[in-house]
Write a protein that binds this DNA or RNA. Structure first.
Lengths: 124, 124
DNA sequence: ATATTATGGTTCATATGTAGATCATAACTT
DNA sequence: AAGTTATGATCTACATATGAACCATAATAT
């Protein structure tokens, strides 16, 4: 069984996405990755074991533990939980409570944001 | 200027990566996305404005605000900071302090994890 | 009311993140 | 000391996340 793919297209210069991250973002990610790595070692878990439990490759776990900003947030959070790093410093039940509170707050806020005048908001 | 790509290969069934996320992971992401959305509206920022500041497309911001687990963690964190959601509930200076503490802790832990016997660790 | 703008949801092309394999070295055990 | 295992780093193929351009509708302003 074979598939034959042929495509012809104009060569466009690849517009590679080079993102810029703020220092705080990089440090937040760095801290989280450090906590994950420390927690894994404290639990005496192998990189392979954690990767298996998270359903990811060992290479991806390495990138997560190095604080790579381009990993999926879901996987990073999952790994964090597996090794015992609490996100948001709360247990699961209070987490749900927070979610409900946030939803209530959202219900009160306007559905869409509209500018009255052309004012630049840079102060916060 | 043209490029011609041709490739022939056996048709392999696509082994799509269907990840499974724990409930806690999904809720943590859901909470973060809710906080981001609420914070954006409180600051009266348009989705397009935040997207521009973060250097991402409006569509990606939508996914972030919906709690999509497959977004890059760096972008999610960046957006969170832009709209004023504090990660880790600390300012930047104490964040760096935490990073140092984590690094110190890592220096004390063994470099690699070695199992003495074949024990299954499932209790935590 | 009408007009204007923001948002939500598509679709498509492609840049890239991930799995899997391999290898070299470090780190631990005996 | 030798033997064993964990880790770090590389490479390739591929599945997919993202940007861009749409459109339809909701939400706000006048």
């Amino acid at each position: 069984m074979f598939m034959i793919y042929i495509w012809i297209k104009d060569k466009k210069m690849p517009k590679s996405i080079t993102r810029t991250y703020s220092r705080y973002t990089r440090e937040a990610c760095s801290l989280l990755s450090g906590l994950i790595r420390a927690a894994r070692k404290e639990h005496k878990l192998t990189a392979q074991e954690v990767a298996d439990r998270a359903g990811i490759s060992r290479g991806l776990l390495q990138r997560i533990e190095k604080g790579d900003l381009k990993c999926e947030i879901g996987v990073v959070f999952e790994v964090a939980i597996i090794v015992g790093v609490k996100l948001f410093d709360t247990d699961e039940s209070t987490l749900r409570k927070h979610i409900r509170q946030t939803e209530d707050k959202l219900a009160l806020l306007p559905k869409s944001v509209r500018k009255k005048t052309k004012v630049v908001h840079d102060e916060f």
